[in-house]
Design a binder for these strands. Sequence first.
RNA 1: CCAGACGGUUGGAUGACCGCGCGCAGCACACCGAAAGGGGCUGUGGGAGGAAAGUCCGGGCUCCACGGGAAUACGGUGCCGGGUAACCCCCGGCGAGGGCGACCUUAGGGAAAGUGCCACAGAAAGAAAACCGCCUGCGUUUCGACGUAGGUAAGGGUGAAAGGGUGCGGUAAGAGCGCACCGCUCCAAGGGUAACUGCGGAGGCAAGGUAAACCCCACCGGGAGCAAGACCGAGUAGGGACGAUCAGCGGUUCGGCCGCAGGCGCAUUCCCGCGCUAUCGUCCGGGUAGGUCGCGUGAGGCGUUCGGCAACGAACGUCCCAGAUGAAUGGUCAUCCAUCGCUUCGGCGAGGACAGAACCCGGCUUACAGACCGUCUGGCUUU
RNA 2: GCCCCUGUAGUUAAAUGGUAUAACACUUGAUUUGUAAUCAUGGAUUGCGGGUUCGAUUCCUGCCGGGGGCA
Length: 115
Amino acid sequence: MAAAGGKRKWATPGMVVQVRTRRPGEDGASMVRVGFTTSRKIGNAVQRNRARRRLRACVDDVLPGRVKPGLDIVVIGRLGTRDRPFSALKDDFVQCLKKLDALDNGEHGTQGFTS
RNA sequence: CCAGACGGUUGGAUGACCGCGCGCAGCACACCGAAAGGGGCUGUGGGAGGAAAGUCCGGGCUCCACGGGAAUACGGUGCCGGGUAACCCCCGGCGAGGGCGACCUUAGGGAAAGUGCCACAGAAAGAAAACCGCCUGCGUUUCGACGUAGGUAAGGGUGAAAGGGUGCGGUAAGAGCGCACCGCUCCAAGGGUAACUGCGGAGGCAAGGUAAACCCCACCGGGAGCAAGACCGAGUAGGGACGAUCAGCGGUUCGGCCGCAGGCGCAUUCCCGCGCUAUCGUCCGGGUAGGUCGCGUGAGGCGUUCGGCAACGAACGUCCCAGAUGAAUGGUCAUCCAUCGCUUCGGCGAGGACAGAACCCGGCUUACAGACCGUCUGGCUUU
RNA sequence: GCCCCUGUAGUUAAAUGGUAUAACACUUGAUUUGUAAUCAUGGAUUGCGGGUUCGAUUCCUGCCGGGGGCA
């Protein structure tokens, strides 16, 4: 919720991404946490689940080792999430991270993330 | 070959890698939690439907209520026979209606038990009825007709519907008044388990429609639903028991034991009455969050044989086949199979119907790209 | 998942089985120099599809949409 309320977000046809940097005092300062949101606009329960799974698969593909630690990321599904080709979906995600200045050029291992 | 009717099957296939939740086996950690309980890794097994949908019927199961029976009320069902655990379901038949036909549709008991309704129009909407018309008698007459007493349902007009239809005879005019044919009602041989059918006979024809209007008759029905229900069980706030301490006044057998006062509640004001009264500790019980079970061997699937026109039943063999709970089936790739578009006929591109289990079964209804199989009807052509 | 309620003009509501009615809003016209007010005027497949009936908003039935409740 804190991430969703923040100002840092970017939208593409495949998804909307919101980012928040955790304060030092919070738990898991070195981890990246990812949350997914799929609203009823997308369709019924099965269509929402499928959109959510596609987003999760996309994040699992892209994320490891490329994102600054200590971030909370919220990925929101849109109508396009269901039918968009997977490679385009990945491109969307990378573009979002770039625009939100979340990509990490240095060496950080993947400390794990929860969703 | 064209057009059509009915029934059934299927609901993309194979493989690879990475994931998801569940079962089983093994291993490890003592990781989360107060507890109940949950979790990690590895291997392995299987993981949506014919409608899983709508929640419209019928059951199982669970809790609640209930001594038995009957009646009433309310709700449902409603041709006959069969099937089934049961049904508003299914099968077979009957009647009625539709179609050239294959075939389809059908809430289809009772209208001489009673009540209601049938708007508008029309004279009249039900044991009826004379508006126009037709005919007869009498009276008047300006010879056109008018008045009056009757007869008459053939004609006109109204309506969804006007109390058989057509023709001939008959008559003052008419009329089942008589006759023929058709229809109808009643009796009824024979057939059929029955619904029903009906050889034959009788009757001049009565009894309009509506019961998905009230109703009558027969039969059936207790209520709620897995968010049912059962077990384990924090914290907080109530409840109970025990112990300790304190009180505005008085008493005291020194026990929160008794009385008074005060406060609060019994809708409100006064009087009376009734009930409860503070703090701390320990224990007990109900119960909430949370957790576990319920939860999948079942009216079960498949196959063969037998009985039955069929629905279905029986016997034998064989198989174990989803179980989530902020809720698992996904992602990517390759080859093929349908489909569509472009095509220089080599290919290229797009792209997969309706739809997603939530306690479980039997039905119904609704949605559905296509593909395949079988039976039958009508028409055309050829032999 | 289960259980209820509801659907009529643009909106809010009526209507014994018998021409779908009213208010507000809207369209068009009249009145006015113009506006308001006033007068006239038009607009509904009764959510959709079947059935019963001579006739259905009403009765029966199947779908569709909207709203509410149950731990």
